[in-house]
């Protein structure tokens, strides 16, 4: 049951941008993007490469700061926080906003430590409690059965799909409220992709999920809402069914029907 966008009440919006403009040096990556994201729903961002989807995602946890020449204008709200306010605790923000990257990025340590490092840092957990958190996170990420006997092994020994689920478990272990996924399946085989899609639907029960994807079928399968970006602009944003069945914009229709992009 998906509410139409305009019926969303204020408390149902977890993340919101207003007139967001982002520049990398002289290039403008996002143009005037205003996008409310529904709480406990999967929102998919689609569009051709270089259209600003990832930039949008990275504005929400301020991972853009590290890029030289980065500059932003406009308003961003994530949960009750303004990421770009001086008073915002960046570490708290990133605890509440988890992120999964395109390529699996296991940290150079054991499987156990990969999952434990965040919980240890944020909650100061040790011993049994930490073990429990790690097990729960791995179970939620559907990885526990595969790794429970090899927790001490380096994380790099896992397969690509397992590594990506490990990254999801690592993120879940710090108990985020918003989950950003930047093309999480583009480096994976169909079986792994399927498992992660299932996971996304499961996570949306109690998390707000924003996922960037190039795979239109995936967006249609898993998302409640879909936003279509092109050249840094938000072209169309609607409930996924609506957008994929009867797109309002010519560009959207061309893109989802595969005429370009």
């Amino acid at each position: 049951m998906v509410e139409p966008l305009n019926a969303l009440r204020a408390e149902q919006v977890a993340v919101e941008t207003r007139a967001l403009n982002v520049f990398y040096g002289d290039t403008q990556a996002l143009k005037n993007v205003s996008l409310p994201v529904a709480r406990h729903r999967v929102t998919a961002l689609i569009g051709p490469s270089g259209c600003g989807k990832s930039t949008f995602l990275r504005c929400l946890n301020r991972l853009n700061d590290r890029i030289p020449g980065f500059r932003m204008e406009g308003k961003v709200r994530v949960l009750e926080m303004d990421p770009y306010s001086k008073h915002t605790d960046l570490i708290e923000l990133r605890r509440r906003v988890g992120m999964v990257f395109q390529k699996p990025t296991p940290l150079p340590m054991s499987i156990y430590d990969n999952v434990a490092i965040g919980a240890r840092s944020h909650y100061g957990l040790r011993g049994k409690l930490l073990d429990e958190v790690v097990e729960q996170a791995l179970q939620r990420a559907a990885l526990w059965d595969e790794v429970k006997d090899i927790l001490k092994r380096p994380a790099l020994q896992l397969s690509g799909g397992q590594q990506q689920r490990l990254c999801i478990a690592r993120m879940l272990a710090v108990d985020p409220e918003v989950i950003l996924m930047d093309e999480p399946c583009s480096a994976l085989d169909p079986v792994s992709t399927f498992r992660i899609e299932e996971l996304m639907i499961d996570l949306a029960k109690d998390h707000t999920v924003i996922v960037v994807t190039h795979n239109m079928q995936q967006a249609a399968r898993v998302s409640h809402y879909t936003a279509f970006f092109m050249y840094g602009e938000l072209v169309e944003y609607d409930a996924s069914k609506q957008l994929f069945l009867s797109p309002q914009q010519k560009a959207t229709e061309d893109y989802i029907s595969g005429r370009f992009g």
């Binding site: 991972l63 590290r66 570490i91 990133r94 990257f101 390529k103 990025t105 490092i117 965040g118």
Partner: peptide
Amino acid sequence: PESLRESALALGLS
């Protein structure tokens, strides 16, 4: 790789 640093920072590590 920058991705390692980003992963760690995105986890909320200082």
